[in-house]
Amino acid sequence: MSDHTAAGTAEAHLHYDPVGNRIGMWLFLLTELILFGTLFIIYAVYFHRYTPDYERAAHELNRLIGGANTLVLLTSSLTMALSIAALQKDKAAQAIRWGFITLGFASIFLVVKGFEWAHKFELGIYFDSEVLLARPKGEIVFYGMYFLMTGLHALHVIIGGSLIVTAMVKIKRGTATSKRMSFLENTGLYWHLVDLIWIYLFPLFYLIHR
């Protein structure tokens, strides 16, 4: 009995349950969806109230840049999936390569997003700015939602990026292998969620006007 106790302590910490890890991750993704879902509800309520203002404000966002950025993020989801597929086949070097390509796309996305924001700031459009406060109430709310939601999304891109870096380090050290896929798989799930949220953000902010 006491053997079991002594040996068991170490064993408990090595306990590896890929299905459990996946359940945990999906539950976490659910909380993330609800977090953004709340913002989507707020967006919808004000869209209903201030439709013309929303459409006018949305007109000022550049569809082309937004669309290009959507493509960048979609492609990064593909490269992420390729990284996972590579590790499943025990091709660690390949997995790391795809991981870095994913990171590259993430950086492009963030840089483009940064330029978009900077352009708005130059026009004097930011929280509580005089230019913005002089506009109709619906436009103030639209830009409030725009900066908050794309900002929070960008934060998630950064978190996702750091997760990818951690996963790459783990692959390099050999603690993430085809037998211990959970970390990379969960990173991939998180990355797809970040992508998915953007797929909703893009039309809601860039495409609502005729």
Binding site: T38, I41, V45, R49, D128, K137, I140, V141, L148
Partner: peptide, 19 residues
């Protein structure tokens, strides 16, 4: 000073209560 819940900037305090 975002304005999402500030009535003077178009926000709705009752929406806050709902959420």
């Amino acid at each position: 000073g975002v304005g999402i819940f500030d009535p003077s900037k178009g926000g709705d305090p009752i929406l806050y209560q709902h959420l």
